[in-house]
Every structure is written in C-alpha cells, then in structure tokens.
Design a binder for these strands. Structure first.
Lengths: 213, 213
DNA sequence: CGACCAATTCCTCATTCGTGGAAATGATAT
DNA sequence: ATATCATTTCCACGAATGAGGAATTGGTCG
C-alpha cells in the first residue's frame, strides 16, 4: 500500500551505476591532491576528500584500496630529475646557480609542483613511513644525481645543503607563510638564491670567506 | 563477608593521593616534550604520554586542562631572542656570520633546543593554529629583531631567508634525517653556513655575483 | 534479450581519541 | 580528630576515522 521506500529521504540518490562518462576516479585524485597538499596526510580524511569531490566515501576504497594507496597515487613529480640536471648542467658552470634557482622556482610556481612539494613535506613530517620514502627518493633521485655533477669535495654535503635550503624555502613560503618570502616575486628570489646555490656547489666550504658584498 | 572489592583486579592500584613527593606534573611535561618532538602534535596522544610517563591519562587533564594547553606548556625557548641578537651583534660586523652560525648550531646541539625546534616545526605543519602562532612568534620575536639590526635594504627579506635556511636545516637534519647533514659535525656546518648568513645579512641581493670559489 | 561486470549507495563495525564524572585516598590545616 | 583540598584511579561518552559488506543500477558483450 505504501510506496516502497520512496520519498523517505528526498535527497537520496538512486543506487547503481551513473549514466554518462564517469570522471569519479579523476575527481577523487584531484581533490585528494588538493587536500593532502593543504592539510597534510593525517588531517586529510577519506570522508573529507569524498565530500570535496562530491562522491560517496566508498568509491575511494573501491578505486584505491586504502588511504595510503590513494596518497601514493596523488604523487606526481613534474620533471625527471636526472634529465633535468643534465639539461641544467649542459650550459656549463657559468650561470649554473641562476639556472638551478630559475628551475626550482618555476617548479614551485606551477600549482602541481607546489602541491606535490608541500604534500610530500607535510606527509614526511607526520608519517614516519612517508619520511623514509622521502629520504630515499630525495637521496637517490635528487641529491645523488645532483652530487654526481658536482666534481668537488663533499659533493653529497653540498647537494644536501641545497636541498635543505629548498625545503626551508617551501616551508617558509607555503607552510608557515612568512610574509617577506610569500610576497617576494619569482625574480627577487632567483636573484637572492643564485649566489647561495653557486656557493654550495663550488665554494670552499671549509673557509669562511666573505661571499659578496 | 567478601572482602570489599579487593582482589578483583590484581593490578588495580589503590585510588587516592600517593604518598611521598609527587613528580607527576613534571613527569608529564617531560614525556610530552619528548613525544611532541618525536611524533608531532597530531600523532601524539594523551594516552600515549600518560603511558610513557607511567601516569593515569586523567592526570594530564587534571594538571593542564587540555591537549593544547599541555602543548603550550612544553614549549621553552632556551634563549631570549633580543638579548641573544644584541650579544651577537655587539662584536661588530666582522665575524658576525660565524657567530650566528655558532649560536644556532649550539642551540640545536642542546637536546632541549633541538626538541623544542622540531616540536614547534612539526606542530606548525600539522596544526593551522600552531602555524599561526609560529608565524607570529618567528616574525615578531626572531625575524624583526634580527632585521632591525640589519641596516640594509630588504632587511625583513634577509632575515626571512636566514630563517628559511635554518628551518630547512632542522627539517633535513632532524625530521627527514638526510645522512650528509645529520652526520656532519657542528664545525663543518658552521663553516659551511657562515658565508651564507653573511651574504643574506650584507650581500647584494639584487646582483647575482659569484660568492666565493 | 540475458549474463556479467563495473560503478554507486547505504549501513555497519571496531578502534581511537579528547574530554569529563565520580569516587577514593592521602596530606594538611584547624 | 575533623574538615578540607589536591591527587589519583576507574569508567564512560560522543565524535571521528579507516575499512568493508551487501544491495542496486547501468553499460557491455554474447
């Protein structure tokens, strides 16, 4: 006599497969990238991603299996480190610091690069497993290839100092949002960082010489 | 007839105040400092601190009221920024970069300073409110006083760049544990960082000059 | 048309967390 | 001694979370 379960909840969408093209998977990844980048791994929740993507939370498990696998699927390095270093060093030692600074800043100007960077850093801070992954990736894929092109003493230390400066820049600019750095222009930062990168690459680390004035 | 409630749980300690001196409050703070520094704000739990301190979880609320207040109680800056800067700059411009590097590294060599630094950074990454607090503290108490002593153009930018390098060093050395940096000695890092600090303080930020060779 | 599979929704479970109530006990002051 | 207060223990609540079961619907292929 009663209509069977219809009208019980006016907002209740019908179950089953939606007609038309299904962008659900991509919507989830897109929203997950945003939230992991903005909130970090721990404070980002499956339900929050689902809400932001306009999707049932169950879809995330359906497509990705777990929160960790979803996070892994959101990571995209927008360049190939070894190829990028080769191109950067192809121009010789002259101007190498500026080219590195330009390259790093341009990666961080791109929303994808910026989100990936902050996302990975935040995850490394809150998840030990992520920190281990970051350590391996940074060391094997970024710092060692960079160090290999630095034919100087303490090559790995030099690469690590550059990495530390870059990480600090990301933290100060995007995570803590220190005004002088978040307001500085791309060009200002390139100019300010260029001498530091050149010093870390080629300078005499064991002699506290003055560095320009 | 039955012994009243005794023997029900052999491990059950008697209620009420313990005899002797009560170090509970200090035990909690001590353990909280360790865990906030090691795990960050989010992954540190009241129950975990209580377990580590050998204390009932309720004691934490009893003494501190909430997790946030407990965290606030664990923060201890082991120096007075303005006084420290005054002392550092009292020796004049010559050797100022080295003195700053020495000072920062010595603070980070001290377990208390190191724990406070990592703890605050981790909290800033995982908690927006903490990030706001860190931004204000860093800007008002550290960077502006530092900038005030830098009688050059872009004083705040210079101070922020130093701050970013220090934060990056802490991240790389203690959070991600990049080997070349965590293995480097105090002296190595002082030598490597001194020219950078001097450049950030006094160098020409708008001219990409070479910085030592 | 019928069988099969992917996509979608609803509901549930077990766990964990921060917080708080209430009672018990020792120390201390009167 | 008695009253008062701080300290301590156990227990519970409500919320949030990651994960998964089961049913329903639509596309696709025979």
């Amino acid at each position: 006599m009663k209509q069977p379960d219809i009208g019980q909840s006016p907002m209740a969408r019908a179950r089953g497969r939606r007609p038309g093209a299904a962008s659900t998977r991509e919507d989830i990844i897109e929203e997950a990238r945003r939230q992991f980048g903005e909130f970090g791994y721990r404070r980002t929740t499956m339900r929050g991603i689902a809400r932001g993507a306009g999707v049932d939370p169950r879809m995330i498990l359906h497509f990705f299996g777990s929160k960790q696998e979803l996070f892994a699927a959101t990571i995209e390095v927008p360049f190939e480190p070894e190829a990028a270093f080769e191109a950067l060093f192809a121009g010789g030692a002259v101007g190498i610091g500026q080219r590195i600074a330009e390259f790093i800043l341009s990666v961080l100007d791109d929303p994808r690069g910026q989100r990936t960077a902050t996302s990975v850093i935040r995850a490394a801070v809150s998840e030990p497993e992520a920190a281990a992954l970051v350590r391996v990736f940074l060391t094997q894929r970024m710092l060692l290839p960079l160090a290999r092109r630095v034919s100087h003493d303490h090559a790995e230390l030099r690469a690590s100092l550059i990495g530390a400066q870059v990480v600090g820049l990301i933290m100060a600019r995007y995570v803590v949002a220190l005004k002088p750095l978040s307001a500085a222009t791309h060009e200002d930062l390139v100019l300010a960082l260029t001498p530091v990168f050149e010093y870390y690459l080629f300078g005499d680390l064991a002699a506290a010489t003055a560095l320009g004035h």
